[in-house]
Each structure stands twice: as structure tokens, then as C-alpha cells.
Design a protein around this nucleic acid. Structure first.
Lengths: 346, 346
DNA sequence: TGCTAGCGTGAATCCACCC
DNA sequence: TGGGTGGATTCACGCTAGC
């Protein structure tokens, strides 16, 4: 990185080590072992050591950037706050933080915390005065003519996109999806721009850059990664100039869990719900569970579980089974979900 | 804040200011006045002052927390990286970062950046050792029986919930939605817990806490805000106790050793237990141990140890692994434990 | 060839209590 | 306080084997 001249690249994308601090082994409920990140390159002695590492590469990165250049950095809660602080301290000007919402994250197997379902990206210009590249129209068009938001949904990198060695194991533990890099490059570079990735890894940045007609420089220490990245990028066929348009992904209806209905106060805790024929009644609790007492039998759980239990059925769609009382009669709680979907609830 | 004693609150929710006007003119370390023309110095001093402010209140917050207490802090990219770094440096242990996805964010009118459609929350325990409160079941139930993720969608605070002055203008610039606080309190406090909000503002924390049967302490300098918050909270009607019961964790249930099942004669010594696919069989002994003989291999021990051994697994939950035979087919012995817990066994 | 059930796996700071 | 043990704990999706 030190060998590169001042002001020679338009954009930097960086996926630095996250400084994860994992304990012992983690197993899934089926006793299989989770293959975590235990590589040497992710080990730092302290926050201070990580901060020094971060400031060093960010300072070099800023030197190499053109005056109107910009940087993207990705991370998780383990490191992103330290990276963000260093970005501000080294003179970059933050433009947005962007959330990559994973459509298929790994669950929290022990039920000890929330499912870690996102990663954070920081987009920053070299300085407050930089006239950074932002292809507003392109992103808006690809988003069904709505302004592109700061939260992006993509699946994690799996299947045939994921690079595997001869042994069938993943070559790189943290390969990023190309779709993520596509959007970044489409939104913040022009064709012909030079993109630098100082933590090249499996070469996702290079593959996306070549595909989209951008030049790239990739820096990487590990020879296995370099070899895999070279082979991968060699296979990429650049798009012709006219095809550099992204396709919007059709979105399914937003999922609205029952707890949301209570959080919106469309139903209050303590409210009564009824089965269609009113032969079963349940009480709503603050946490979004239902409670039924019939004789000596007490049941509690989700609207679906409790609905199934009172009917002695294997499964039940609580949204259509449970009803609330209105002047005009019973209405299914699905009606309330619909209100939220349509934005009719404040 | 300095007046509160050590270790007196269970949870802290903080929405710190991120404007850099912290009162008084900024001065350099050498006491010379900051010249507004010198951007770099200005920026540096601003960040330094903000960091000092942040570290001060976080240190006090940590002192006031009980050993097993936790903190939530909300912010945007202007300040959250500095806050997150300070949280780590003052000894808190980050549990999750959570994204509040705004369903109706303010658009970016000039089209110069992405629509800023989210804010970031950090959830951290007082220390790595803290046994923080996490109502896993409650959140999972309210999320239609799926683990709660780290990205939450709520609308911004508008309409009748938004507090307005006599002039019709909003009283507080960044009033948070009660639904957000609702989920935080349901997920990470118990009824009767004490919640502190050191930047009380319009009192959303107090309103949600009172509604959910939690005590609260609110700190605020601005008299207008105090008055508005008091009036607001006075109107809140607390929920009744029954609605506040949340889905209990199985861990909280009384422990029933396997021997008890035999003592209750729900299983007799000598009875046979089977694995789910009936490929392993074990014999129940009077002392509550199991015995398995497969070829020359003899295994004995607890239901868990023997279950793990026959599967060659590191661990096993014997209650769900071993089944007994009934007319209708195999049933897990967990069913018998449930009978005892419910007092249905003689 | 087509469909399905079952298996594998992903940047993870992943247990609690008793003695 | 450290070791032993009871026993709680998973979502989405791609691939494969089998019918």
C-alpha cells in the first residue's frame, strides 16, 4: 500500500479483519460444529493494537485517494465503531452508514442474544469538500423509482458463488456477495474508474469491478487467496457498455409479526381474542403471547401455537383464526396486520 | 447523575445529543480561541470535546448500573461510532447492535446521498461477566415463533403520539416512538426493574416504563421538556399484572431429575426407552440411570450421558432424545416430566 | 426427467448452576 | 473459583440422494 503514489484511485472498498473475540467451540442444536473465524489475521492483542492497525491503513488509504475519491468500509459491531471513529479522525467525511440486512443470517443457536442479522458499511468522502461520485438516478431507477435507502437487503454468499477448495471447504471464511459490490460500484463509481481493495481476500471486489467495466487494484498477503481470486476473476466476462443496468428484485409483502400489532397499540395487552365461533377465548399479553385457561388447562404461546392447541390441531394460522370484537362483530386480527402493512397505523 | 448511588438501576436507555454545541466556546488545549476558518482544528476539537462528554456520562452510567445491568444507546452515523468506541473503552460488553429501520423516513431532498432510513442502537452489558436480562422466549413469541433479529422496523414518531406545543410545533426534535422502547423494555427488563434515562427529553422512556410496570428515573435539564414529559406520563395507565406475564424460559421451570419420574412410577425400572428412530434402546434402572448394551459395548449413566454416547455426540438432551412406547407410538420422556411439573402425576 | 425429503452450513464476541 | 453436569438451543437456502 505504501508503494502506491498519492491520489491515484477513485474508490476504495475495504473489508478489514473484524477482531472477533470468540470463546470456545460453538455447536448447533443438532450437535454439529460451527466453523467460525479462527484465522491468525483476525487476532489482535487489544483494542489499542486494533486501533493502531486501523489508523495506519486508513491514513495510507486516504493518501492514495484522489481528492474527490471516497471509501467504503464494512464491519460488524466488534470493530465498526472503532473503524468509524478512525475514519472521522483521519479526516474523511462520512456520507452515509449503510446496513446490509442479511436475508439468511446464521441464527443465534443458544438463544442468548438477538440474531446477528446485519453488517454495517460506512461510506465516506476523502474530505468534506470532495465532489464524490453518486449516481442518484441509477440507484433510484433500480429501486422501482424510489430513492435508495440506507438499508440494503442481500443474501449471504452461498451456493455456486461461494469459492470452495478441492476439499469442498470454503476457501475464504468471509467471502462477500457480489450483489453487494455491484450496488456499491454502480452507485459510487463511473465506468473506467480505478477501485482499490486493500484486503482483497477472495477477490469479490475485483470480480465485480471487471464485470462492471471498472479497473481495480487488489492487495492481499495470503497466497491461497491470491490464487483463488486470480482464477475467479479470469472467468468473469465484462458487461458490454449498454448493459450496465441493474435489475430490481421483486419484493414479497413485508412480514408483520403479531408483536408488532401490540407495539402499534392496535390491540392492548389484556384484550380478548375469540375463535371464529367464539367457543374459545384468549387473552393478549404485552409480549405478544396469548393466554388461554379452559378448566384446569392453561395454554400460552404464539397466536399460532395457542390456536393449534385449543383445536387439538397440529398447526394453525393464528392470523385468520383469532378475532377481535368490534361493533359490527368479530374481525380477524389479520385485518390489523393489513392496517400496518398499508401504513394506516400511526 | 453524580448524585445517584452505585449499582442502583437495572437498565439504562440513553439518547444522547449529537450536535456538537455542548455549551461554551471551544478552546484549544493551549487555550487559544478556535478560529472558525481553520476547519481541521475545528473538527478535531469538536470530536475531542464530544468524546470527553461521552466518556464522562458513560462512566457515570456504568457506575450507577447494577453488576448485571445493561445499557441501550441510540444514535446516527454522526455520533454512534464515537459512542460505540467509548462504550467498549469504558468496560461495557457489547451484546448486539440493533438497527431501527424507519418505515417512513425523511427523504433526502437534494438527492446527494442515500435516504437516511435507519438509526443504530447499541445494547451492552455492564461487563463481560454480567448476567444480563434477555427475554428470549417473549421476543421469539411476539415474532411469530422466529428468533428476534437485530433489525427492527418501526415508523417514526408522528401523529397523535408526537407531542406538540400550543404553537403546534413539535416540542422535542427527536422524540422516539414508544413502540421502540416497548420492545426494548419487554426484551431486556423484568417487571419492577428500575430504568434510567439520562437524556429524558419528552419522556418516551418514562411513558413506556410506566405502561409496562417498570420503575423509571428520568434526568433532563430543559424545563419545557420536563413539563411536557410530566404531563405525558401522568396520562399513561399501567397495564395490569396479568398482561405483563411474558413467555417463561424453560430454564426458569423447576428442575425435575429423571429419578423423580421413576419415583412417581410414570416409568418402572426395567422399562425400555428408545431413540427417535428406534435404532437405539436403553433400559431404565431403579436409580434413574440408563443402561445400554450394543454388541460388546456397555454404556451406563444419566439419560444425557448415555444419549450422547450412543450417538457419538458431545452432548445430548436426554429428555427430548429418549422416548417411551405408548399405544399411539413413541413419546419423549419430556412429556412425563411435564406431567410432574403440572401436578398431574399422583 | 421431475419432485421431495433430508442434509449441510453461514464474520458468532452463544449456558447456568452446584459443589 | 474451577470443574463437572444437567439440559437448552436454529433459520434460510442450496445441494444431493432417492424415488
Amino acid at each position: 500500500m505504501k508503494k502506491l503514489p498519492d491520489g491515484c484511485v477513485d474508490l476504495i472498498f475495504a473489508d478489514p479483519p473484524y477482531n472477533l473475540q470468540l470463546g470456545g467451540d460453538l455447536t448447533r442444536p443438532d450437535n454439529s460444529r460451527v466453523d467460525g473465524v479462527d484465522d491468525e489475521w483476525d487476532k489482535f492483542d487489544s483494542f489499542r493494537a486494533y486501533d493502531e492497525f486501523t489508523r495506519n491503513w486508513l491514513t495510507e488509504a486516504r493518501r492514495i485517494l484522489k481528492p474527490d475519491g471516497a471509501i467504503w468500509v464494512i464491519g460488524s459491531y466488534h470493530n465498526i465503531f472503532r473503524v468509524g471513529t478512525a475514519i472521522q479522525d483521519t479526516g474523511f467525511w462520512i456520507l452515509n452508514d449503510v446496513i446490509w440486512r442479511k436475508s439468511n443470517p446464521m441464527p443465534n443457536f443458544r438463544g442468548t442474544r438477538l440474531t446477528n442479522a446485519h453488517e454495517t458499511l460506512i461510506w465516506a468522502a476523502k474530505s468534506q469538500k470532495s465532489k464524490y461520485t453518486f449516481n442518484y438516478r441509477a440507484l433510484k431507477t433500480s429501486n422501482d423509482d424510489l430513492q435508495m435507502r440506507s438499508d440494503w437487503e442481500f443474501p449471504i454468499c452461498t451456493g455456486s458463488e461461494r469459492i470452495k477448495g478441492e476439499d469442498g471447504n470454503k476457501t475464504h471464511p468471509t467471502q462477500k456477495p457480489e450483489s453487494l459490490l455491484f450496488r456499491i460500484l454502480i452507485g459510487s463509481t463511473k465506468p473506467g474508474d480505478v477501485v482499490l481493495d486493500p484486503f482483497f481476500g477472495s477477490g469479490t471486489t475485483g470480480a465485480a469491478a471487471k464485470y462492471l467495466g471498472r479497473h481495480f487494484i487488489g492487495l492481499e498477503r495470503d497466497k491461497t487467496y491470491i490464487k483463488a481470486a486470480k482464477a475467479r476473476i479470469a472467468k468473469v466476462k465484462p458487461l458490454d457498455d449498454e448493459s450496465l443496468i441493474t435489475q430490481p428484485s421483486p419484493k414479497a409483502a413485508a412480514r408483520v409479526p403479531f408483536g408488532t400489532v401490540i407495539e402499534h397499540k392496535l390491540l392492548k395487552p389484556g384484550a380478548k381474542l375469540y375463535s371464529p365461533r367464539k367457543n374459545h377465548a384468549a387473552q393478549v399479553r404485552a409480549d405478544g403471547s396469548l393466554y388461554v385457561k379452559e378448566g384446569d388447562n392453561e395454554i400460552q404461546g404464539s397466536i399460532h401455537k395457542v390456536g393449534a392447541a385449543v383445536q387439538n390441531a397440529a398447526a394453525c394460522n393464528g392470523w385468520t383464526y383469532w378475532h377481535y370484537e368490534e361493533k359490527t362483530g368479530l374481525k380477524p386480527i389479520d385485518f390489523l396486520r393489513d392496517k400496518i402493512r398499508k401504513g394506516m397505523a400511526s
